Simulated scan of single mutants.
Amino acid sequence: MAGTIGALSGITLASGPARADAPTPRAQGWQPVPAPGSTPAAQLRRITAAGPQLAWAVGEEGLAGPSRGRALAMVWNGSAWSKTDLSHLNYTGRLSDVAGTCSTAAWSVGLPTGNASPLLSWDGTTWREASFPGRGEPGVRLESVTVGPDRRVWICGSRDGAARLLLGDGQRWQWLEPLPVASANLYRIVLRTPDEVWVSGDQASGGGWSGLVARWNGSWTVLPPIAGARLGIGDVHAAAPDDVWAVGTEAGVGGPPGRPGNPALAHWDGTAWTRVQPGFTVGSLSGIAADAQGRAAWISGWNYQDQSRSTYLRRDGSTWSVVRGPAGAAPAPYLNDVTPIPGTAGFWSAGMTSPTPAPPTEAYTERFTA
């Protein structure tokens, strides 16, 4: 079954010869969608959608040689991606995450350049810098953001040397109590209910690190570490407290610089973590997205041993199967994220046209249509 859906991507089924006045059939499966306008090397790190007519994606562009690049943000208007102007901002670093629920309720965060990370808000037309407690403080780092249906904004990051959450409504902001884990890094925050969020990352373990997943619903609940050889958890999905999926990359021990890691997939049943074989052995898993019923449905990844197409895992009942994206869409597409399109059975994914962030690599997106 592995690869069946990917192999069918782009094939349109018809019941007879096409008429000149017949509507163009809609392609099903994963299809590439141009994301023009960025300066190579460019990549999209995260993507989110408010519906079929509105989505945002962020990352970085202009990576070349020793250059650190600059922030990249794109918006989808229902028919095309366009690059948004960020020249008015006092920020040039990489945007690391984005979340939004409507045209005037979207937020983005970025990695620190000089002092603290920026917090950006979307006003329906452009991105603006927003104030928050700790803005400009050295050591303040905003990693990931999510927005609830009540428009409250949840951000994970660090302040005062500890992993924390920042919660606000755009006007009032509050840092919540620190995560009770020493030497922890948080990479992703996701919303399960308006008052419950889950975070993922890593924590120090011996001479390396292990996978970290925790829940906040007024206080912290930290799940047991996910064992691995230098394992970081890049994304998490909690359908319920006893049904949690985590994805990431296990860097392993030793090997030459730039050595590919191993994809990591784990499930929490309320008692223990179970590692699940993802269907390929060298590469990474980067993002996880749920279907309209809230069940984990798609995982974005990168298969080092076969880079000719994008790589996904699709859940079918209790099993995950490898699915390949469209052929010839990019030289060797690398995916960083996958997200559902609300109000549809579709999904977006985002990344770059090759696994090396150097020219001529460009920003890249694919869309799944059921």
Rank of each mutant, 00 (worst) to 15 (best):
T319N: 08
S210C: 01
D85H: 00
G59L: 06
E196W: 05
T361R: 11
T84D: 10
P112T: 10
A2G: 11
R172A: 12
E137H: 12
I288P: 02
T353V: 12
S318I: 10
T353D: 13
A350Q: 12
C102H: 14
A239Y: 02
H88T: 14
R26D: 03
W30R: 04
L44N: 01
S354D: 14
S117W: 07
P52I: 02
S87M: 06
T361L: 05
A238W: 03
S183T: 12
E366Q: 15
A227G: 00
G59C: 09
R45Y: 05
V338D: 02
M1P: 11
L335Y: 05
T101H: 06
L44W: 01
W302M: 10
V153G: 04
D169M: 06
G255R: 09
P32I: 13
A27G: 04
A327R: 12
G283S: 06
G279Q: 05
Q203Y: 00
S354F: 09
R315S: 04
V199S: 04
G208E: 15
F280K: 08
D291T: 09
S300N: 12
P260F: 08
D269I: 08
G100T: 15
W107F: 11
W175D: 11
E61G: 03
R188V: 00
D316P: 05
D195L: 09
E196D: 06
L119S: 11
V323A: 10
L89M: 10
Q293S: 15
V140K: 13
D169N: 15
S321A: 11
W320R: 05
G218D: 01
T319M: 13
S354C: 05
D85P: 00
L167W: 03
C156V: 06
Q277E: 10
P36Q: 04
F280W: 13
W175Q: 12
G207C: 09
M1C: 08
P149I: 04
V253Y: 12
A71S: 00
W122H: 02
G317R: 11
L191G: 00
G343H: 02
T365S: 00
S219C: 07
A105V: 14
V190R: 10
T125C: 07
W107K: 15
L86P: 00
A71R: 00
V153R: 05
P32A: 15
S121P: 08
G114E: 09
A266R: 03
S200W: 03
N262Q: 07
P25Y: 08
T4Q: 11
G232E: 14
L89H: 13
Q293R: 09
V153E: 03
G29T: 06
G279I: 02
A214T: 01
L54N: 03
W216M: 04
L13G: 13
S108N: 15
W154H: 02
W216E: 01
G254T: 01
P224I: 12
V222T: 02
A297M: 07
W273P: 04
A290P: 06
V181A: 08
L313N: 13
S183I: 09
L179T: 12
G3Q: 09
N90D: 07
R46A: 02
A2D: 15
T271D: 13
S310Y: 04
V282G: 06
